[in-house]
Amino acid sequence: MSSTAASPAVEVQLPSIPLAELAPCALFFGLLGTLVLFFVGAEQGAFSLSSGTLVHEFVHDGRHLLAFPCH
């Protein structure tokens, strides 16, 4: 029979990040996500920001993938 000694448990301290430090990044990525969703879902419609069909053709497959109607 072989006996092995149990190794002592090691406590790991996880760093805590204050909410005030996360807020600017969360706001930036939230606005960026909203802008991306606008261009995929609503651009070339009633609230068009650009003329022509360049944006429409660029996000066309993404519209179908996300079930947005475009034609």
Rank of each mutant, 00 (worst) to 15 (best):
P18V: 02
H56S: 08
F39G: 02
P18W: 02
H71L: 11
L32S: 12
H64C: 07
A26W: 01
P24M: 01
S2A: 09
A23V: 06
E43M: 09
A9I: 11
A5L: 08
A20I: 04
F58M: 15
E57T: 06
F47W: 15
V10E: 10
A9C: 02
S7V: 12
A23L: 15
G30V: 02
V10G: 01
T34S: 15
S3G: 05
L65G: 07
S16H: 12
I17H: 02
S2T: 06
A5K: 12
A67T: 06
S7W: 05
P15E: 09
F38Q: 07
F29K: 03
S7A: 14
F58T: 13
L37E: 13
S48M: 05
S2G: 04
G30P: 01
P18D: 11
Q13M: 06
L49G: 09
V12G: 00
A6I: 02
H64P: 00
A23G: 00
M1G: 12
L32D: 06
V10N: 03
L27R: 06
V36L: 13
A9H: 12
F28P: 00
G62H: 05
L14H: 00
H60W: 08
A20H: 02
F58Y: 10
G41T: 04
A23T: 09
P69K: 11
G33M: 10
L49Q: 06
T34W: 06
L65N: 09
H60L: 13
F28I: 09
C70F: 02
Q44C: 10
T34R: 05
S3V: 10
G33Y: 03
L32A: 15
L37I: 07
S16A: 14
M1C: 05
